[in-house]
Amino acid sequence: MSTVSSEIISQIEQLNREYISALDSLDMTAWLNCFNKKGQYNFISEENHRRNLPIAFMLDDCYKRLQDRVTQVVDIQADSTEHYQTRHFTQLMSVEALDNGQYQAEFNYSIYYTRRDSNQTQILCVGRYMDVIEIAENAVNFIKRKAVTDTNVLPRYIAYPV
């Protein structure tokens, strides 16, 4: 990380905190605000990622899809989902400068979930975020957040982005 200033690293970590805080409070508008108009989100198994198999669990490859992800969570599936509370834990592993104010970052993540019916806590999934972040004058956003999960067999259906 030697080529990237501590100020930049701090901005990237702040963006990541906003992201996981949005999900842990299920504030989908705040989640969407972590991306800019070039934003893409992908949640994929490590197995598919490693084997170059493109099928993902969630594949939002344009900003409109990100907006529709919000619609899906807030409007479409709200009454059929058994709600669960998540808690995301992340650790920044690397940051590299790209061109045009863009940075490539990688975070490890582990996500716990607590079911409302049983109030028991289990691991939802573990993996890494492979990110491209754009830092402009007044904005720090994800252009790309790819959540690659080592948990190739999910322990349950997943209703919200991770």
């Binding site: 198994s45 197995e47 598919n48 198999l53 099928i55 999910l154 349950r156």
Partner: peptide, 11 residues
């Protein structure tokens, strides 16, 4: 042609 898997445990 295989394009990938989604794997899950249902309770």
């Amino acid at each position: 042609k295989l394009i990938g898997y989604q794997k899950v445990m249902y309770d």
